[in-house]
């Protein structure tokens, strides 16, 4: 049924391909030019004109070389920074922690032994256990004590004259040690908050951040094996805004949503939970 000859001459073939190629190039070209003219010129210039934006700025915004959109003026802000913590996690800080000196941290930690225990595990439950805490969490808190972002009658003094390097060394030393192992308790209320949270009150599962998952801010502390009293004190301090060095109020927001009974239960739950 084939009506066309099978063998064209090479010249005929080339001519046929050329026609095809021209047609295709034309079709693709027309579409591209129309899209470019409309998207980068007509739309932004007309939109910009209506809000008093000059044509050049409108085109630059459409391309993305100037901030803002062609349909509105950019707002301005006169605010000055009043951060709740001076710590930011850049490659420099992360590098300092990665290169922290555990041996030097061990020496520096002698000062801490009185309250936090010779093994980094304290006997007085109002002082937190340090061993097994993440280096990032320790670094952040020591830095905040030093800068005044977090206040404590003892720690504010102890941290004052520590250098960044000393803080990093202490952090990696305690992070390198074993956390305390406890038994476990059955508490469905606490377990539910820890594992599922409560979307009805915008409370995320505590474990979403505190169990080492991706999806947690860098400074998120490990809670497992911490003293119940210490955990409860901190939750209450966040709820009453007497502690507010949590960046963007992450813990202040959650703790105000918790009842005092839930805080008790959660503190007990994490104090007793075995490490996975």
């Amino acid at each position: 049924m084939a009506t066309e000859p099978l063998d064209l001459t090479p010249e005929q073939r080339a001519a046929e391909d050329r026609t095809f190629r021209r047609g295709a190039a034309l079709a693709v070209g027309v579409v591209l030019v129309a899209g470019i003219v409309l998207g980068f010129v007509v739309l932004p210039v007309v939109q910009g004109a209506s809000v008093g934006l000059d044509a050049w700025s409108a085109i630059c915004r459409a391309i993305g070389v100037q901030p803002g959109t062609p349909i509105a003026r950019q707002p301005s802000s006169e605010a000055a920074a009043t951060p709740v913590s001076q710590v930011s996690w850049g490659p420099a800080t992360l590098g300092a922690l990665r290169n922290g000196n555990v041996a030097r941290g061990a020496q520096l930690s002698r000062v801490c032994d009185a309250c936090h225990g010779a093994q980094g595990l304290s006997s007085d439950p109002q002082f937190p256990n340090m061993s097994g805490q993440t280096a990032y969490a320790i670094y952040k808190q020591l830095h905040d004590f030093r800068s005044g972002a977090r206040k404590n009658y003892l720690m504010s003094i102890v941290a004052t004259y520590r250098s960044d390097q000393s803080i990093a060394d202490l952090a990696v030393y305690y992070a390198s040690r074993q956390a305390l192992q406890h038994g476990s308790i059955e508490d469905p209320v606490a377990a539910n908050l820890a594992v599922r949270g409560d979307p009805a009150r915008s409370i995320a599962a505590c474990n979403a951040c505190h169990l080492g998952n991706p999806g947690a801010p860098v400074e998120t502390p490990n809670l497992i094996g911490q003293h119940k009293e210490y955990l409860l004190n901190q939750l209450q301090a966040f709820a009453h805004d007497t502690r507010h060095n949590d960046v963007y109020a992450r813990m202040r927001t959650i703790s105000t949503a918790l009842t005092s009974d839930e805080m008790e239960r959660l503190a007990a739950y994490y104090a007793a939970t075995p490490r996975p």
Partner: peptide, 13 residues
């Protein structure tokens, strides 16, 4: 992270 121009162009495509 992209300007409206590229978004429109890709709408056409």
């Amino acid at each position: 992270e992209h300007g409206t121009g590229f978004k429109f162009l890709q709408t056409v495509l």
